[in-house]
Write a protein that binds this DNA or RNA. Structure first.
Lengths: 103, 103
DNA sequence: ACATATAGTAAGTATAGACTTACGGTATGT
DNA sequence: ACATACCGTAAGTCTATACTTACTATATGT
C-alpha cells in the first residue's frame, strides 16, 4: 500500500515487463530468467529487486537458488487504482454529456 | 493496440499521474492543469502529448483552448493486460501448489 | 576444508527523458 | 490590422536510472 506508485514505476520499464512475462509460466530462478535476455545477470537481479519492492513479485529461496514469482496481490492493488480512475472518468464524461445535451 | 507499452511508460511518471488525477474531475484546458503545479506550462504540454499518444487522454479544442480528458478506452486496454497477467499468475500458482502437495 | 554454483552488492558510466527559456502558431476580440 | 490569450515546438541542460565489470556472500557437495 505504499505500493501504487512503486508498481507503476516498476511497470514503466520494458525490461521489467519482459521479466514479468517470463514469470507468467511460473516461478523462475534468477539465472533462468537471465538466460534468454541480452542484459547481464546482475542487471536482472537489480530489476528483480525493484519488482519485489513494488510488491509485484515475491521471492522464495531453495538452496542457493532464489525463485521469483508474480504476486497477485500487487496486481490487485493496481487494478483498484485503475478502477477508481475509470469510474471517475466515466462519471466526468457523463456529467459533460449531460451539460452539452441539446434541450 | 500499439498502446499497452505506451500506456505503462506514460503511467510510470509521477507528474503524469498527477495530471491524470486533475482530469478525474473532468476535462481541463492546459493552462488550468498547469495552474496548481510547480512545473512550467510547456512541461505540462509535453506530458499531455505523451498521455495523448498513449491513448490515456483525448483532446478537444474550443477556440484557442485545448481541453484534455481521460479516455476510458485507454484504461480498458491496460485492464485487459493486467487481467491476463493476473490469471496467468494464478494458474501458475495453482500448478505449483498441485506439484508441492503432500500426497 | 575446499571447490563450485548461484546470486546480491558496489562503483562507475552513459543515456533517456524531464525540465527550462525562448520562440512560433492560431484563434478571438476591438 | 493589431493586440491579446492560449498553446505547441525547439534547443539545450541536468538528473535519474539502466547498464557494465569486479567483487562479496552463502549454500551445497566432495
Amino acid at each position: 500500500m505504499p505500493y501504487r506508485s512503486a508498481i507503476l514505476e516498476a511497470l514503466g520499464d520494458p525490461t521489467r515487463r519482459e521479466i514479468l512475462d517470463k514469470l507468467r509460466a511460473g516461478p523462475r530462478a534468477v539465472g533462468e530468467i537471465a538466460a534468454g535476455m541480452t542484459i547481464s545477470r546482475p542487471a536482472v537481479s537489480q530489476h528483480l529487486k525493484v519488482l519485489k519492492e513494488s510488491g509485484l513479485v515475491a521471492e522464495t529461496r531453495a538452496g542457493t537458488r532464489h525463485y521469483f514469482a508474480i504476486a497477485p496481490e500487487g496486481l490487485g492493488e493496481l487494478r483498484a487504482y485503475l478502477d477508481e480512475l475509470w469510474s471517475d472518468a466515466l462519471a466526468a464524461f457523463a456529467r459533460h454529456v449531460e451539460k452539452e445535451r441539446p434541450s
